[in-house]
């Protein structure tokens, strides 16, 4: 149980990174590749947040007057991840626009078939 408590978030985060990387390495469909990129992104964000956690910590918000600053989790990874998520959606939208454009000029989403075609 102690092992589970110590490592369950890390297992989740690196499981997501591994599956996302596997999708990127194995698949050849462009949209599938972008799905893998988004899963990888989620995994990295989850790892950063779980590094910032403190046992029995509270969220870093002084919502009531009596809250003590001692037991609060680290706000720096949270601020980083907040910006990373928004950048992630921008990159994803740009990648999907490129995929749509690719489909329009080649008529396929498969990278293997496009290799044989020339400009």
């Amino acid at each position: 149980m102690s092992f589970l408590h110590d490592y369950v978030y890390y297992i989740g985060a690196f499981g997501l990174v591994a599956i996302g990387l596997l999708i990127i390495l194995v698949k050849r469909n462009l949209i599938k590749l972008i799905i893998g990129l988004s899963i990888l992104d989620t995994g990295v964000n989850m790892f950063l947040i779980s590094v910032g956690y403190i046992n029995r910590g509270t969220a870093p918000i002084f919502s009531r007057p009596g809250l003590e600053p001692d037991g609060m989790v680290d706000p720096v990874p949270q601020a980083l991840v907040l910006t990373a998520i928004v950048i992630g959606v921008a990159i994803l939208a740009l990648a999907l626009a490129l995929a749509v454009r690719f489909y329009k000029s080649y008529g396929t989403l498969d990278l293997r078939k496009a290799k044989e075609l020339r400009w």
Binding site: T42, A59, V73, I85, G88, V89, A93, A97
Partner: peptide, 26 residues
């Protein structure tokens, strides 16, 4: 993990907008 700000961003952006953008692209 006590990160409500990030949870909110992930739910509204990761689960809603990204899925919609993917569906439109498909």
């Amino acid at each position: 993990l006590q990160a409500p700000d990030v949870a909110m961003a992930e739910a509204s952006i990761g689960a809603a907008l990204v899925t919609a953008i993917f569906v439109i692209a498909i």
